[in-house]
Computed example of a mutant assay.
Amino acid sequence: MSIRVVVADDQELVRSGFSMILEAQPDIEIVGEAGDGVEAVAAVQRHAPDVLLLDIRMPRMDGLEAARLVCGQSGCRVVMLTTFDLDEYVYEALYAGASGFLLKDVRRDDLVHAVRVVAAGDSLLAPSVTRRLVADVIRRRRAEAAEPAPSSARLDVLTAREGETLRLLARGLSNAEIATALFVSEHTVKTHVSNVLGKLGLRDRVQAVICAYESGLVTPGTP
C-alpha cells in the first residue's frame, strides 16, 4: 500500500518540485496539492492522506492554524516546511500536533526518508534539529518572561525507568541508542516510550521532547 501525501505550499515551484520527487517513489502517491492553508485543510478532508507537507507561512490561513485543524480533526501526520531552522512558528506547530519539520532546501533523499518515517508513526527528531529548536525557543521565552522552569510534578505518573527513557528521548537518542544506554532491548524501549506517551497524553515523540523541556526534566544545553 502506498503512502498518500498532500503537498501544501504557496510557491508553485516548491510545491511541484516536492511532488515530483515524492511521486517518483514506488511507495508514495501524491493525492493532492494546495496553495494556502484553507486549500490544505480541504485537501486533507477530501483525500484523507497519510502525510501532509505543510508550509508554515501561507496566505488566507497560515500553516500553524492549518496544522491545528488537521491534527485535531484527522489522523493525518503533519510535517511543516520552513525556510528558517529557528522559526518560533515551527515550535507552535509542533505543539499543535505536527510530527516535525523540514527546511525547504532539504536533500531529495532526506525528504523521501522523512515522509516514510512520519507515515510509519514516528517523528522527525534526528539529527536533533527539532530538539535544538524546542530548547532554543523555550530558553528565549523564559528569558523574555523572566519565568522559572515549570514544576516537574506532571511527570510523577512515570516510573523511574520511564522517566529516564523520556530524558534520553528528549536528548534526541533513537530507540536503539536508548536501549544501549539503559542496557535493555529495543522492544522494551518501545514499550517504555508507548507508556510515556499514554500516561502523559502525548501524540508522539516530538510532543514528548516538548514536555521534557517544559517540565524541566531536560534543560537547554544539557548534554
Score class of each variant (00 low, 15 high):
Asp10Val: 12
Ala96Cys: 05
Leu155Ala: 01
Gly17Val: 02
Ala40Ile: 03
Arg108Asn: 06
Ser174Leu: 13
Pro223Trp: 13
Gly100Ile: 00
Leu22Phe: 05
Leu52Thr: 02
Val134Cys: 06
Gly100Met: 01
Ser19Leu: 03
Ser174Gln: 10
Gly201Leu: 10
Leu64Val: 15
Val31Leu: 03
Asn175Tyr: 12
Ala176Lys: 15
Ser19His: 08
Val70Gly: 04
Gly172Cys: 08
Val5His: 02
Glu162Cys: 14
Glu65Trp: 00
Val44Ala: 00
Arg167Met: 10
Pro49Ile: 09
Ala114Pro: 02
Met1Asn: 15
Leu155Met: 03
Ser2Pro: 14
Ala120Phe: 05
Thr82Ile: 01
Ala176Leu: 13
Thr82Tyr: 05
Arg171Trp: 07
Glu177Pro: 07
Ala208Gly: 08
Val79Phe: 10
His113Lys: 15
Ala149Gln: 10
Ser152Cys: 13
Met1Tyr: 07
Met1Trp: 07
Gly72Arg: 04
Arg132Gln: 12
Val206Met: 08
Leu13Cys: 03
Pro148Ala: 06
Gly100Trp: 01
Ile56Asp: 02
Ala43Leu: 01
Gly35Ile: 03
Leu200Pro: 10
Arg171Phe: 04
Gln11Trp: 07
Arg140His: 02
Gly172Asn: 10
Pro150Lys: 04
Tyr91Cys: 04
Ile138Gly: 01
Asp136Phe: 15
Ser151Lys: 11
Ile3Leu: 07
Gly201Arg: 04
Thr222Pro: 02
Tyr91Pro: 07
Ile21Arg: 15
Pro26Thr: 11
Glu29Trp: 06
Val7Gly: 05
Leu54Val: 04
Leu217Met: 07
Ala40Thr: 03
Asp204Leu: 11
Asp50Gln: 09
Ala126Gly: 08
Ala153Thr: 14
Ala126Asp: 13
Phe101Ile: 05
Ala120Met: 09
Leu202Pro: 04
Arg77Phe: 01
Gln73Gly: 12
Ile21Val: 15
Cys71Gln: 08
Glu214Pro: 01
Ile210Phe: 02
Arg4Ile: 09
Ala126Gln: 15
Pro49Arg: 06
Met58Cys: 06
Leu125Ile: 13
Asp204Gln: 13
Val7Asp: 00
Arg154Ser: 14
Met80Gln: 00
Val41Ser: 06
Arg107Lys: 12
Asn195Val: 08
Met58Tyr: 09
Gly32Lys: 03
Ala98Gly: 05
Gln45Ser: 15
Met58Thr: 01
Glu214Gln: 12
His187Gly: 12
Gln11His: 15
Glu92Phe: 15
Gly201Ile: 06
Pro150Val: 04
Val79Lys: 13
Asp110Phe: 08
Ser16Asn: 09
Ala143His: 12
Arg171His: 13
Phe183Met: 14
Phe18Met: 15
Met1Lys: 15
